[in-house]
């Protein structure tokens, strides 16, 4: 989820020859600690987790006996495949909603004068990086029976009595995740939109495009890389979140993250949990690559 604060440097490592300097010993001294740490605490754990997903459980023990039963279980147990589909749907809905809500406001921010723009961006970063758990918890207070939403609707006369239908269900998860993830969509959108020179939009208008047409055929295609990064941020976090459903979702709002997490808690089947994690990650990966292909193909058609 940190993509948005990172500089956009994909895999390019071009640098002039004179910058490459220093001895082999110097490189080893710099590289030793981080390389060891990464191998030990990132690469190895992910590798062992992969092995686990093929191992057998005997009682509370996990024995290194190869099996595919956990992967079969994922595709045959309703709990897993149905929950995955539901979670993919909720994550996609959250992503779509964030995109729709964020696009106009990002365009607004991107076209502000520099000073104002940095204030708006700061206002975006604050909720983005602070108090994840507090904000989820707040929604319980907002959506509850005598919460803010019910009180507001009652006083407006839109409801005759407090409604229970806002909390402890999928709707609550959807609202909470949208609120939490919206900044992760706004920031990458603003950073692509602000790079599009206004003159290009003007040129489209001068050449006779209607504003809406210019928007659809010039602005949107040029902003697709930002759209992709934003969707990626939101989709991954929404899909993997397990605390939001646990706090505001009730039984109706359970997501695949909760199912996986419970395999490491109450249900205690670690290999099954590991397999479910890898399958879900693989499905997410396929969707992301498809989206990337779609957005980048369209973006290539319009270049400036």
């Amino acid at each position: 989820m940190a993509q948005t604060i990172l500089p956009s440097r994909a895999t390019e490592f071009h640098r002039s020859a004179e910058q490459t300097q220093g001895s082999r010993a110097g490189l080893i001294a710099l590289l030793a600690a981080p390389a060891l740490f990464v191998t030990l605490f990132i690469l190895l754990p992910l590798g062992i987790m992969f092995l686990y997903s093929f191992w057998t459980t005997e009682g509370s023990q996990i024995v290194p006996q190869w099996t595919l039963e956990h992967y079969q279980a994922y595709f045959s147990k309703r709990l897993f495949y149905a929950q995955s589909l539901k979670s993919l749907r909720v994550a996609a809905m959250v992503t779509g909603t964030c995109l729709l809500l964020a696009y106009p406001v990002s365009y607004f921010i991107a076209t502000r004068p520099a000073r104002q723009r940095s204030i708006w961006l700061l206002l975006t970063t604050v909720p983005m990086w602070s108090s994840y758990i507090v904000r989820i918890y707040a929604w319980r207070t907002i959506l509850g029976l005598d919460g803010v939403l019910n009180s507001a609707l009652l006083s407006l006369g839109l409801l005759a009595e407090p409604s229970k239908s806002f909390s402890f269900n999928q709707f609550a998860v959807y609202i909470t995740l949208t609120n939490y993830l919206l900044p992760f969509m706004i920031v990458p959108l603003v950073s692509t939109l602000e790079k599009i020179p206004p003159s290009i939009f003007q040129a489209a208008r001068d050449l006779g495009s209607e504003p809406l047409d210019a928007f659809r055929r010039v602005l949107i295609p040029l902003s697709l890389p930002g759209v992709f990064v934003g969707c990626l941020n939101v989709f991954i976090v929404a899909l993997a979140d397990y605390l939001t459903p646990a706090l505001v979702g009730g039984t109706d709002g359970v997501m695949i993250g909760n199912v996986i997490q419970s395999e490491f808690g109450a249900s205690f089947n670690w290999p099954l949990g590991a397999a479910a994690t890898y399958v879900t990650a693989a499905i997410a990966m396929i969707l992301i690559l498809t989206l990337r292909w779609l957005t980048h193909r369209r973006a290539k058609e319009v270049k400036f």
Binding site: F41, M49, Y52, A274
Partner: peptide, 12 residues
């Protein structure tokens, strides 16, 4: 996601 890395580290 933290969920994935958390599980991997727990297993490790």
């Amino acid at each position: 996601p933290g969920l994935v890395l958390g599980i991997a580290l727990l297993i490790f």
